[in-house]
Design a protein around this nucleic acid. Structure first.
Lengths: 203, 203
DNA sequence: TGGCGCATACCGACTGGTCGGTCGGTTATG
DNA sequence: CATAACCGACCGACCAGTCGGTATGCGCCA
């Protein structure tokens, strides 16, 4: 069972690269075949269709990122601190890996309407991770009461847009440079005043 | 010059529909041809390529939405009020037109990497509209000092994600239901305390 | 031990269908 | 009668997926 594993992995890796560079539609199976050093038949032995292969790659990478976040926030118990760490982890991790970021955030759309479900599934993972900690923060009285369902998606959207802007324009470089501002907006937004922000002019 | 205009418009309209439903890639020129009741040659007389046609549609719709926002906020002079109105306008306008929303927010990506520039161009318009008013709010002392460049994109991202979630899952229904929460997060986030939010537990 | 059967893993030429774009021609208009 | 506007059959490139094959290894029985 060594050969099998090797070929599968080679395929996944090559697929990752090609999908990230070209996007789902413009990625040709033949190119993945070349990159993985397998035959067309070999590839189709392991994955029944282009779509399934793409989903396998997305699931794999999505799960890895979620796992990374989970283990990063596990060190903290304060929900607000956890939220900060989650933001940091996403920004720095994806900020270091353009290819991965592009694949995860953008390239799937070119699949067409079949992508909807997968997109929802992946983004929900991140949103609910945020939501859980927002709920805790609210319960603790560390954050204002709010609709955490909606707010968690606002957080995800804010980070998402920051990363996409960076992917497309290169600014801010590095992306993580935007972190303080992101934290400020989002934390203050939920009523969890970050320290050292007494700015309002005296009357 | 009446026929020309008519055909052009029919093409643009049909293209809008087809692109919105199928996405850039899965939209077939022949289908647009059918929908516009022109011939293939007629279409290519007015638009030199699929890409150009798509961009024309995007530009048209993007400009219309921007215009709508501009005229909506023109009635107000207070920058914070303007920001609120901008949020409202986008949410309610796109919330009423799934098709338009899908086209503007999602369907372009299937074009592949050529879409990057257009996406940047369109989103920048919205971001800079926000940015201008954030700058004013800061100058007025109505908002905390901040990197308005970054923050404006966070705003855009938050709204964007809310709309995409709605497009893909149907929640919240209607989208505009999320407005109060969005305003609360974003306004409080920039230090422009909305009224009636004294929530923090007394010590 | 060696030969047989069978499954897993892999190969790559080929096919079937799609679709953007073209081009030689026709009609309307001023 | 010149030019703009329009027609639609056709072309060629592309590509996911197929299919008839080969190679390898493993269990099993004589």
């Amino acid at each position: 069972m060594l050969t099998k594993t090797n070929a599968r992995n080679r395929i996944m890796e090559a697929a990752q690269t090609v999908f990230a560079e070209r996007g789902y539609h413009d990625a040709a199976m033949d190119e993945i075949v070349r990159g993985a050093d397998v035959s067309k038949g070999g590839l189709y032995f392991h994955f029944p269709s282009k779509e399934k292969l793409f989903f396998a790659v997305m699931d794999h990478l999505g799960a890895r990122l979620v796992e990374r976040i989970r283990s990063a926030i596990a060190k903290e118990s304060d929900p607000v601190a956890r939220l900060e760490i989650a933001l940091e982890t996403v920004l720095t991790t994806l900020g270091k890996r353009r290819r991965l970021a592009k694949l995860l955030l953008v390239q799937g759309y070119s699949m067409g309407n079949a992508f909807e479900k997968k997109r929802v599934a992946i983004y929900s993972q991140f949103a609910s991770l945020i939501k859980d900690n927002l709920d805790l923060a609210v319960k603790d009285g560390a954050a204002a009461p709010m609709n955490t369902e909606v707010v968690s998606h606002l957080w995800v959207g804010a980070v998402n847009e920051t990363l996409i802007r960076w992917l497309y324009t290169g600014a801010p470089a590095p992306v993580a440079e935007a972190l303080p501002e992101i934290k400020r907006l989002l934390l203050r937004g939920i009523g969890a005043e970050p320290k050292g922000l007494e700015w309002r002019k005296a009357p």
